[in-house]
Amino acid sequence: MNIQFKKGVLELCVLSLLARRDYYGYEIADALEGGVAIAEGSVYPLLRRLRDDGLVDTYLKESAEGPPRKYYRITEAGGAACRALAAEWREFVAAVARITEEAHDEA
């Protein structure tokens, strides 16, 4: 799949996950496994960019297993960006469906 496209979709997926609840890095990589993830590692630069852009923020939470763990939480701006991206995505999918169905009908 086109890499730029995949990156955009990755951003939408991460924001959509965070819109439901707070996650830490490993959980996000884990949830994306199967189809979407490029490499688990690429989640971290993306999260850093989302934080620099103010779409998510982070906090540390004590964990029973080791040192405090970094959690990600979506911000108000992140929620808005997520809805906009999701709308774009639905439009895109609908357009592709329309085109492929038309092509299918003609065949």
């Binding site: 490499a39 590692g41 690429s42 630069p45 960019r49």
Partner: peptide
Amino acid sequence: SSLGDPRLLGREYRAVAFAR
């Protein structure tokens, strides 16, 4: 191996840090 090459991860992270 599922994280991917650490040098590439580092390079991508650098690029994001510089973008700011």
